[in-house]
Design a protein around this nucleic acid. Structure first.
Lengths: 199, 199
DNA sequence: CCTACCGATCGGTAGG
DNA sequence: CCTACCGATCGGTAGG
């Protein structure tokens, strides 16, 4: 009879994911060695290879889990039938909030995804596209002039992602501007600016 | 007597810088080997080490040259005593234009700077701060409410950098939106949004 | 300006 | 035939 999966299998997997994400973010994917990661997790390297077939699989799982969490958070915020403007701000706020304890994962998504083989990258990029889609829809809803095939929708949507995905370069927890503040600021910049552009 | 520097010393140095930047951007700093770079430049590895003491020095020089070019372009655009709004758009346009043939260098600045030792990073970050300073000043000039110690100046300035520094993720040469178009769009988003926020 | 190497360390896998 | 875990070490390649 097959040996059943250990009760804490998933907890251990999550712990490995969190620790390795921190090490990848700090030293980069190539420089964080499997030995370091095993040590950081308090397990043997052989056990690490029991959970993940190779280093790439570890990187893939970190980014996939992260993107799934972002998508879940944003889709939840996008669900209520709120007016366009409030819905966009809720989405931006949900995204920034999902980034709160995921700085390492965010940096890895931005900087290390290209280390993966093309098919794996494609699977992750599909999840990124899903995220972009929700924001583009919320934007087109809040500023009707951006819908209907306007050339402005893409650059404006990407401008919003630029702001939000760049926040980790300057934003500091406990500073004068909170995450909620910045969600409001970014939403205002985009909405008022887009209305002016479209008008 | 010391051997004089070859007439084409600087041309060769620039060529090495451009080729290695392309390889670092494509494969990442760690994976692009000095052997690959030497081959790509059509020189021996020993000659490469004649120009640069080590791999770090090469990385440092790529980013320093790049940042110096950005600063020069933006300071030139910032010089004319144009009205605040036009000056900001000129600065954004100059920055986006300086990025035109520097996609590799831009990616390296964003992704690989942390590979350098702290003092070298500091020297480069000082150049980044100089760039930020010019934009913050142009913004405060164009939207007076952002000046005078407003808490909004930093997040709004960083929002602008987010938009512009993120452009390489989606912008394609020859697409429906030109660099000039996007300079206008980003400037409008920031200016109209900031006025609405400050008001 | 070249090639032959070095000390160190990598990701990954062996038997049990 | 599966999964859980160890100590030891593999072949290759990096920067210099």
């Amino acid at each position: 009879m097959a040996r059943p999966r250990a009760d804490d299998y998933d907890d251990k997997r999550k712990a490995i994911l969190k620790t390795s994400a921190a090490l990848f973010a700090e030293h980069g994917f190539d420089r964080a060695s499997m030995n370091q990661i095993a040590q950081g997790c308090g397990v043997s390297k052989a056990l690490l290879y029991h959970y993940y077939a190779n280093k790439d699989a570890l990187l893939f799982d970190i980014i996939r889990d992260h993107l799934d969490e972002l998508n879940a958070a944003v889709e939840e915020a996008s669900a209520p039938a709120a007016p366009g403007e409030a819905r966009l701000e809720a989405c931006v706020g949900a995204l920034l909030d999902a980034y709160r304890d995921a700085n390492a994962e965010h940096k890895i998504q931005i900087n290390e995804m290209k280390r993966l083989p093309p098919e794996q990258q494609e699977e992750l990029k599909e999840r990124e596209r899903q995220l972009v889609k929700v924001f583009a829809a919320a934007l087109a809803d809040a500023v009707p002039a951006l819908g209907g095939g306007s050339e402005l929708l893409k650059p404006v949507t990407m401008s919003l992602f630029g702001m939000v995905n760049w926040h980790y370069m300057w934003f500091r927890e406990g500073g004068p501007v909170s995450r909620e503040d910045y969600a409001r600021i970014a939403t205002r910049l985009i909405l008022d600016g887009a209305r002016s552009l479209a008008g």
